[in-house]
Simulated assay, not measured.
Amino acid sequence: MNTVSNGLAVVEKYLAIVLMIVMTAVMALAVLFRYFLNSPLSWAGEASVFLLTWISFIGGSLGLKYKAQASVTFLLDILSPKMRKTLLIIGYVLILIFMAVVLYYSYTWVFSSSTVSQKSNNLQIPMWIPFSAVPFGLSFAAVHILSHLSGLMRKEEGK
């Protein structure tokens, strides 16, 4: 599972880099056209919001991969190693349950007939494309959490 998580993280990093470069270029063009050419781009704001949404969900997934979230660990620090692992396992399982619920509803939402037929105002792209950031990001994050959980279980078995 760790190999899958690591491979997915590489793909996510490159995807995030490309999306950030594209968003930066779109915003720079928007400023150039609005203030220097006096001809604003109507689609730039919408494209930036869609790109930022994708970047946020991919970044959130990478944050889970590298355990980069802010956390208060004083309780974990005072517990015995066995209790610490038990608490971490419970935490990972709760995160996975939450993700499963949100994933179910996000896939239902993205593939609903109203979303599939809906188009964005300025870009005229199908709305399932920007909305897909939610299930994709959470699916990637679930893989990373499963990897952490399996690694924690292997440590426990190795003792």
Rank of each mutant, 00 (worst) to 15 (best):
L152T: 07
V11C: 09
N121V: 15
Q69L: 13
V101P: 00
V11G: 06
I89M: 11
A100S: 12
W109P: 01
F36K: 07
A68K: 07
D77Q: 13
L64P: 01
V101D: 09
S139R: 02
W54Y: 10
P40E: 02
I21V: 15
S139E: 03
V134L: 11
M127C: 12
A28I: 15
W43Q: 02
S117A: 15
Y14T: 11
V143T: 02
I89H: 04
Q69F: 15
V11I: 15
T86K: 12
S56V: 11
V102S: 03
A141W: 00
V93I: 15
S120M: 06
S42L: 13
P126S: 14
T3L: 11
L152Y: 06
V143C: 03
K65N: 07
F33S: 04
W128N: 04
F33W: 07
E156W: 11
A30T: 05
I21A: 15
G151M: 08
Y104S: 09
P81N: 08
P135A: 04
A44K: 00
Y107P: 00
Y66C: 05
W54Q: 00
N6F: 12
N6Q: 15
K65G: 01
W109M: 10
W109E: 08
H144S: 05
I97S: 06
A47P: 00
E12C: 14
R154A: 14
T108R: 15
S139W: 04
N121I: 15
K119E: 09
S61I: 01
A30I: 04
L152V: 06
L88A: 10
S117M: 13
S39H: 13
A70H: 10
A133M: 03
A142E: 02
Q118S: 14
Q118W: 10
A70G: 08
R84Q: 14
T115A: 09
K155Q: 14
L37C: 07
F98T: 12
A9N: 10
V26A: 05
L29E: 08
M127K: 13
K155T: 13
V18F: 14
Y92G: 02
S56M: 13
F131R: 10
V22R: 03
L146M: 12
R84V: 10
G45R: 01
N121G: 12
L146C: 09
V134W: 00
R154N: 13
Y66G: 05
W128C: 03
S139V: 05
K82N: 10
A16M: 12
N6S: 14
S48D: 01
A68G: 08
S61H: 00
I97H: 04
F57S: 02
L96Y: 04
H148K: 08
T53Y: 08
S5N: 09
V101K: 05
P130D: 03
S106W: 01
M27K: 06
R34K: 11
I125Q: 01
M99A: 11
V22C: 08
A16H: 06
T86G: 11
I90N: 07
N38Y: 11
L103S: 03
L149G: 00
S5T: 07
Q124S: 14
R154I: 14
